[in-house]
Amino acid sequence: MTKIVVAVKYVPDATADRTFDADNTVDRENVDGLLSELDEYAVEQALQVVEAGDGEVTVLTVGPADASDAVRKALQMGADAGVHVEDDSIAGSDAFATSLVLAKALEKLEFDMVFFGMGSTDAGMGVVPTLVAERLGLPAITFASEISVDGDTVKIRRDGDAATHEIEASGKLVVSVTDQTGEARYPSFKGIMAAKKKPVEEWSLADLGIDGAEVGLENAWTKVESTTPRPPRTAGEIVTDEGDGGTKLVEFLASKKFV
């Protein structure tokens, strides 16, 4: 019986016009949110692990009230239960505070493995998994593009910049998965119906024994001074190929001294 927790984040839709609020935090009000697409891969891999044997998947999210949408989506995909940590003082937290809340929540949950996405699609730094592992003193096998689980040993392929590694760890551990692991499933009609009956727990900071002064925008270890939209690109010249498209392209490149 393998118990897996998957940490998932509710993020503004990347295909919408994302922007910042006056306090330089991500605008989460005016843009529709969803389960971060990169976390769907983590949910998928966790489901595949329990389907190959015996186990259960719990999704864990830290976020505002609407973040329950992300939990629901994961439940529709097939996860068994959800935990949603919500508290006004968490708003604007940095990666350190987020990892603290996740680590405290994980201490309350029973698990063998905790899966993460490779990075959140909003202000993603890709460091929360490693920070949670550091806080809990657990091995972290991160950026898996291929996973194999054998008993309590997990082996992954990790495509680094300079080399591809095969790495391995055993026991209770943290895994993060990339979008190379393979398509995530869509919720089936049956999955959508079943999700309605699955248990979701709501926890506050007090439930986790965290002081509000340890989290939130005011207590972040970094401060965003300004956010500036990039000036729109000036409209370029578009030509239609009439047998001379390649030549015209080179004429342009030559005018810019690339040729």
């Binding site: 972040a220 401060k223 965003v224 500036t228």
Partner: peptide, 12 residues
């Protein structure tokens, strides 16, 4: 946001 914004920040 996919290169749509430039952000200036400091460590505090």
């Amino acid at each position: 946001f996919a290169g749509n914004f430039t952000v200036a920040a400091q460590v505090t």
